[in-house]
Amino acid sequence: MKRTSAFRKVSGFTLIELLVVIAIIAILIALLLPAVQQAREAARRSSCKNNLKQIGIALHNYHDLFSKLPPGIVEFYDSGDRGNWGWAAYILPSMEQSTLYNSLRISEISLAEALDDPAMVTAMKQSYPAFQCPSTPVPEQTDRDINPLSGGPDVFLTVSTYVGNGGSWRLYKTKAAAASAGRNEGCVNGVFWSNSNVRFRDITDGTTNTILVGERTWELTNLSTPLSFKGRTHPHAAHIFGTATAASNTYYGMADVLGVGESHINGPGYPRNSFSSAHTGGAHFLLCDGSVRFISENIDHLKSTSAVDSTFDRLLGRADGDPIDEF
């Protein structure tokens, strides 16, 4: 007869073994999280790059149709600082937004007139991901107001994180206005400005050497200065549809759709007028040939005067006579 023991051997974890397993799992999770975050950011960067490529295709389509690029701003000089359409509004049909373009009557009326129509305002307050970098958290609408034609309440529209190339230095409506302010060479030397009509053949430095569109983020984490005059100390991104403009030759409002080389990429100074991104180390730029490049924030750009005297200045200038081979 087989005798069984009154005691059975019970297998399992001791408390120490359990704690060791938990610690190993915690370490693995800690190692995994940065990798997941990096993968997500890589996907967001890829999406941002694709957005710019689509914008590039749309701009080239516009040029094919009209033999010129859209104007930076189609401006009807108005002392009331009322709204006028910007360059992005004119490429909406090539961005799969033909219905929106037609409903806003962009080819028929000014932005100021559209802002008096509640249905049009509602459409312009919607989010359009094709004009927003997914790495940049943005509010539902901008804090930069535009006035309707009636002079009614200020209107705040949706946000874009992409701006057209307005030149190497500061925003002026014309070369004459820049000259009267003692600034000329690096001003109004980009691809877009007030009522501009640039053709690719006018970009004599070459389309592979000239910036067409670049990024501007909503807020830079490296800027501790609080918000001051009209958002100068923070980028506050841009507008899709247009901007408020004044009858004078000042840059007022043009920064809502255009960027210049007044500040370093992701740098302090006048980021409201310049280029920046939420990506580490630089920003994406669409070149005039349709390619997209990530340009380092450390690119040669010692900005102190309106002279075109740095690599980044030359990339922004369309015809400075000094094309860039490598950057």
Rank of each mutant, 00 (worst) to 15 (best):
T4L: 14
S5N: 13
K9S: 09
G12F: 11
L19Y: 04
V20I: 15
I22T: 06
I25T: 04
I27S: 08
A30M: 11
A35Q: 14
R40G: 01
R40D: 12
R40E: 11
E41F: 00
S47L: 12
S47T: 15
Q54E: 11
I55C: 02
G56Q: 11
F66G: 00
I73D: 03
V74N: 11
V74R: 14
Y77I: 10
S79G: 09
W85T: 01
A88G: 05
Y90N: 01
I91R: 05
E96T: 08
S98R: 13
T99L: 10
L100Q: 01
Y101N: 03
L104N: 10
I106H: 04
I109G: 00
E113G: 04
A114V: 10
D117S: 07
P118A: 03
V121Y: 07
K125E: 15
K125Q: 15
A130W: 08
C133D: 15
P134Y: 11
S135F: 02
T136R: 00
V138D: 04
D143E: 14
R144W: 09
P148W: 05
P148G: 03
S150Q: 03
P153V: 10
F156T: 02
V159C: 06
Y162V: 10
L171T: 02
K173R: 13
K175W: 02
A177D: 15
A179R: 12
S180L: 10
V188E: 03
S194Q: 09
S194H: 04
N195A: 02
S196P: 04
T204Q: 11
G206C: 08
T208C: 03
T210C: 12
V213G: 05
V213I: 15
E215L: 09
E215M: 10
R216D: 05
R216C: 05
E219V: 12
L220V: 03
L220I: 10
P226C: 02
G231H: 11
T245G: 06
S248V: 02
S248T: 14
T250D: 14
T250P: 00
Y252H: 07
A255W: 12
A255E: 14
D256I: 04
G259Y: 08
G261L: 06
G261D: 07
E262M: 12
I265E: 01
N266T: 04
N266Y: 06
N266P: 05
Y270I: 08
N273G: 03
S276L: 09
S276E: 07
A278V: 00
A278P: 00
T280M: 04
G282K: 05
L286W: 04
L286V: 04
L286T: 03
C288T: 14
D289G: 04
D289A: 03
D289W: 06
V292K: 08
F294L: 07
I295G: 02
I295H: 00
E297D: 14
L302Y: 13
K303P: 07
A307V: 10
D309R: 03
D309M: 01
T311M: 09
D313V: 02
L316T: 04
G317F: 09
